[in-house]
Design a protein around this nucleic acid. Structure first.
Lengths: 216, 216
DNA sequence: GTTATAAATGACTCATTGGTCACTTATTGC
DNA sequence: GCAATAAGTGACCAATGAGTCATTTATAAC
């Protein structure tokens, strides 16, 4: 529809702009944090002037909130409309869930959101609360539900689900935090698949030597 | 030695100041992040004027580095001089390690450092590298060592230690990040002991139902 | 074409804050 | 007591960067 081959210095693209600005803003916010992010830098990466940002967002804080809200809402929509594959039991539900997280989130720009929210919780508690309520509590419910179902059907040992859910979620958070903060310190990038496999192996079988029946 | 009952407006305490300033700085940096932290705020919490900070630290960045360096060096010293109780096997070594972390770090101001380092990795990579090399790699070595020893002695199943160590460390990180970023969203504070118990239970036994021998 | 209008911008302002400095006050040595 | 010295300070400066606005330019309507 619109010219896209030669990025003119001047271009009017009111439809595409908002998303472009959000994309650029997400990248810079994740890299630098809220306070250290310069609006000029976001504008530069989006290929516009700083003043253009203000045509679409009230101010820096509103832009920030829009970045988080938009990213999360889009992601939650995705999970709602395309839930992880039909599961035959609690174990498969957990595997699907963690696998889907790795496939959908870990490799995408979205993976920067948790780091960002965690880092800014002290400055922008409103965003932390939103993330807590809309993302964490949903994840918690799913995991606790799977643990309860698994225990009820004799598929899992009974565990302290109210605390175990965090143990199960933690490695997911760790992997994306690693990517955004310590990847640069290492020669090899983190292999998300292998990371997940290591978790699933430990999660279901544990470390203890099992002289009997291996659930496979 | 020095007057401490009535906190005069003017007091010369060249010996106690550095630590007081570091303590105040750590608290504010953890709460706000580097860029959002105002030197006036640190000074206020330490009960001094902003200019006093400059008698002890070159500038904001040097203060920040001193906070991280000092905290970590002190902690590493502590671990070096008072290692977790003598362990009879790999399993007990892991238990001691994780328990010691919870007891020494989780409840202390030190627990804010990881959040801080993670958040500022993009702005101050030097600090991220220091943390990576001096803390993370040491933890990794210990955990990988325990896994290897456990496997060699038939105490543990063999696992992908090079990735499994992160799975084991992740819940520790999660617990302190939770405390500093999402505690405020919840009615009940996180029970570190219960969190650790939940992890140990899962770590050693896994979720799978074990019809035979329960390693206790 | 011509005009209307909405997108986009560069140049500006102004509040904030890291950093400095001349000066004040506590402490130490004699 | 009385310097001498070092700790501590308030008031200031300069740079930075969020936010504004008059103006320019692309697009749409006719």
């Amino acid at each position: 529809m619109s010219v896209r081959e030669r990025p003119l210095r001047w271009q009017r693209r009111a439809d595409a702009r908002p998303q472009e600005l959000l994309d650029a803003a997400l990248a810079v916010f994740v890299e630098r944090g809220y306070a250290a992010t310069r609006l000029d830098e976001i504008a530069r990466r989006a290929g516009v002037a700083k003043a253009t940002l203000y045509r679409y967002y009230e101010n820096k804080l509103e832009l920030f909130k829009a970045v988080v809200r938009h990213s999360l809402v889009a992601s939650l929509d995705e999970w709602a409309t395309r839930p992880p594959g039909k599961a035959v039991g609690a174990r498969e539900r957990l595997v699907s869930l963690l696998t889907a997280f790795m496939e959908r989130v870990a490799g995408s720009p979205l993976s920067g959101i948790p780091k960002l929210v965690v880092a800014e919780a002290g400055n922008i508690p409103e965003v932390a609360r939103f993330y807590h309520d809309e993302v964490i509590m949903k994840a918690r419910a799913i995991v606790v539900g799977a643990l309860a179902e698994g225990a009820a059907h004799g598929e899992f040992r009974p565990v302290d689900a109210e605390y175990a859910w965090r143990i199960i979620v933690a490695p997911m958070l760790f992997s994306i935090i690693w990517k955004h903060s310590f990847q640069a310190c290492e020669a090899q990038p983190l292999d998300f698949r292998r990371h997940l496999d290591a978790q699933l192996d430990l999660l279901f079988n544990g470390l203890a030597v099992n002289t009997k029946k291996k659930v496979r």
